[in-house]
Design a binder for these strands. Sequence first.
DNA 1: CGCCAGGTGCTGA
DNA 2: TCAGCACATGGC
Length: 289
Amino acid sequence: MLTVQAPDFSLQHTLECGQAFRWRKHPAAPGPSGEPIPVWYDGVIFGCAVRMRQEGETLIAQTLDPSLTAAHLRHYFALDLDLARVLASIDVDAQIRGAIAQFRGLRVLRQDPWECLASFICSSYNNIKRIEGMIERVSQAYGTSVSFNGFRGCTFPSPETLAAVPERHLRELGLGFRAPYLRATARLVAAGRLPLEQLKTTSYDVARASLMRCDGVGEKVAACVALFGLSHYEAFPVDLWMERAMRYYFRRRRVTAAKVQEFAREHFGAYAGYAQQYLYHYVRTARPG
DNA sequence: CGCCAGGTGCTGA
DNA sequence: TCAGCACATGGC
């Protein structure tokens, strides 16, 4: 069992805000003799099956895999980040203030870039429930089995593995028109033509432009991968929900995606991506005024 | 049943 | 540059 100090952190908001698709929640429930069983989440990170829960300011991970360390968890959940300072920097208007008040402790994850890229290719013109199912089926079909106490999960398959999968097979897993996109991108990455790790240290503009060379990756998916997989915190993904949130700032003016990105960077600053994720979760769940 | 979904690529003005 | 359209599928 691993424990990590996690001040200013909400496991629930972090895992349920729609940035990751592979965590399975077990709701809190009364146990056999009426004692409360807390909520936990099963997932697969760094190739390890893991069961996560939070007790106060402590994050607790259970795993059978000794290769998973507290340092891995601190990195994945971005616990090294001074969240108070980040939130103070983006707390610049009434709407974002409402979102922060509601979801304080939400942190932008540092997901595996390849899994993140593949996942968000699957996300286009789709809903979260079905995206989760698609990623899960791809993992079960082509990943490696890992488990913890009755939780049987699978790693997400490597680009090399997916590059060799016929498009037809991906369609049979329900990927629809995204099947050829995922396959083509897997081939690009497997061939070393898209150095995802390197894009963590380039400028956001370089990362964004590189990602958009992939089939099925446009402005929005590139921003998601840059934010959730490459820690480019200025990235500001705009989907249908965010377009609604943006009406708060643009009212009736017609705006392009580039204009929104420019506005967000100027309005919220270097951590605009954090503002995006708080607002996204807010408009989807809290129904702001 | 019809509408919707963390969009993208292509086409034609 | 930019509106208009097709694209697969299942959740609700």
